[in-house]
Amino acid sequence: MSVSNYASGSRAPTVSICALNVARSLAGDESAWRAPMSAIRDVTVRLAREGPILITQV
């Protein structure tokens, strides 16, 4: 699954995703996934506060 699929909403609304999978997709290199995690967490929290997503596990 590409990052564009995550962003475009091509997944069913009831399907969950893991921030780690998003980071791995963004990094492109399996060893570089940690770098974007902080930004992904920040965006996730912002989106949860705005309402379009629900965080179910911390």
Rank of each mutant, 00 (worst) to 15 (best):
A12R: 12
R24D: 09
L47I: 00
E50W: 13
A48R: 01
V15T: 12
R46G: 03
V3P: 04
V43R: 14
S2G: 05
T14Y: 11
A23G: 01
Y6G: 04
S38M: 09
P13D: 11
R41G: 08
W33S: 02
D42G: 04
E50Q: 13
L26E: 08
G9D: 01
V22C: 03
N21V: 07
C18P: 01
T14H: 13
I17L: 05
M37P: 01
A48E: 03
D29R: 15
Q57A: 15
R41P: 00
S16T: 12
G28Q: 10
L26N: 00
N5D: 03
A7R: 10
R24T: 02
A7D: 06
E50T: 04
D29S: 08
L20Y: 10
S2A: 07
M1R: 05
C18D: 12
N21R: 15
P52A: 10
E50P: 00
R41K: 13
P52D: 03
A7Q: 08
N5K: 13
V22F: 07
T14V: 04
I40T: 04
R49N: 08
T44F: 02
R34D: 10
R49C: 01
R41W: 11
A12W: 13
M1V: 11
I53M: 01
V58E: 11
S31A: 14
A27V: 10
W33N: 02
P36D: 05
S8G: 14
P52Y: 04
L54Y: 04
S8H: 02
V45Q: 12
Q57R: 12
R49P: 00
A19E: 11
L54H: 03
L26H: 00
E30I: 13
S2Y: 04
A39N: 10
R34A: 14
I55P: 04
Y6V: 15
P52H: 08
S16M: 08
I55D: 08
I53T: 00
L47Y: 00
S4I: 08
V58F: 10
R49E: 06
A19N: 15
G28H: 09
I53E: 02
A32Y: 11
M1L: 09
T56G: 02
R49F: 01
R11V: 03
M37K: 07
